[in-house]
């Protein structure tokens, strides 16, 4: 069972008369020889780590060793002013919570990477809380998101060192958008469109971590990744279709990744990482200062 494109997934779903989560379970069963139950339990374990990481970031003292991150998620979660609604504020705070747990050597589930590990937990826990999504249904949502991630891994990249933050938080936002659409009853075409919109919103996003740390701007891009996921899902669920099909959007992503300068791909040599202030922070907090020339 080969999955190389969204067309493959679409075709398998039609042939098997199955949902995308069922197609992904079948893919994993055939690939690894695990039973269906083992695959589902594996995803359940990931879901539980995600939920735990959100809770830890909102309750524990999470100040990163560099001091750049200092319990930001709690501040947002408890903020008195709501830019939009309370639940939107909470969704963003959850992504930041996991980013802080990650920076403070806490336990997270990389989805698809550690640097972008805030987005899927924020999307899933927000769906559980705001829409009463059950644990079993949330697992199906994660399986849908894994399909999108798999296609990006196959045809572009999720690594910051290869595709910048487009590859990391852009992919996570696309995964999240597809899961939201599925969990709110959207069809496969709408799932595809939501992923397209999310990637389009992150196309060309660079990876320029201050002092080479997975802290700033990573935490803000995780927050914005959640907003991207919900915006993209909202647009797709309204019946608007992506002009460019997902398979082509991912190829465009790969082209942009190749065109991106190595200075903008996790090497801390360009962008925010190369600002005067960032270089000062680097000298202050990091023991070696020859990261970028």
């Amino acid at each position: 069972m080969e999955i190389n494109s969204f067309s493959d997934i679409f075709r398998y779903a039609q042939e098997m008369r199955a949902t995308i989560p069922e197609v992904m379970i079948e893919y994993e069963v055939r690939k690894t020889g695990k039973t269906r139950e083992q695959v589902i339990e594996g995803v359940r374990k990931i879901l539980n780590v995600m939920i735990e990481s959100v809770n830890n970031g909102l309750t524990r003292d999470v100040k990163s060793p560099s001091g750049l991150l200092n319990n930001f998620a709690k501040k947002v979660y408890n903020a008195k002013i709501n830019a939009l609604t309370v639940n939107f504020k909470k969704a963003i705070a959850r992504a930041m919570a996991v980013s802080e747990v990650n920076a403070c050597m806490g336990r997270i589930a990389a989805a698809p990477t550690a640097g972008s590990s805030g987005i899927m937990p924020a999307v899933i826990t927000t769906m559980m809380e705001e829409h009463g999504i059950s644990e079993d249904k949330a697992i199906e949502g994660l399986l849908v998101s894994s399909a999108i991630g798999l296609l990006i891994v196959k045809n572009a990249s999720v690594a910051g060192s290869e595709a910048g933050c487009m590859g990391e938080t852009g992919s996570a936002a696309a995964m999240g958008a597809s899961a939201i659409v599925y969990l709110l009853g959207g069809d496969n075409k709408q799932i595809e469109s939501a992923a397209c919109f999310a990637i389009q919103g992150a196309m060309g996003l660079i990876c320029d971590p201050i002092a080479g740390l997975v802290e700033i701007p990573c935490i803000f891009r995780n927050a914005i990744g959640v907003a991207n996921a919900f915006a993209s899902a909202q647009i797709a669920l309204s019946g608007i279709e992506s002009v460019i099909p997902l398979d082509e959007v991912i190829l465009a992503m790969n082209e942009v990744a190749e065109l991106m300068s190595p200075k903008l791909k996790e090497t801390a040599q360009g962008g925010l990482a190369n600002t005067k202030t960032a270089r000062e922070i680097q000298r202050r907090f990091i023991y070696q200062i020859d990261i970028g020339k």
């Binding site: 747990v101 698809p112 994660l142 998101s145 802290e215």
Partner: peptide
């Protein structure tokens, strides 16, 4: 072909899969 658990996971201590988990 990657496994879905290459996408959802690994479960690890942050901040970096290469610099911490590896």
């Amino acid at each position: 072909m990657p496994s879905i658990f290459d996408i959802l996971g690994p479960v690890m201590i942050g901040p970096s899969s290469s610099h911490t988990a590896g």
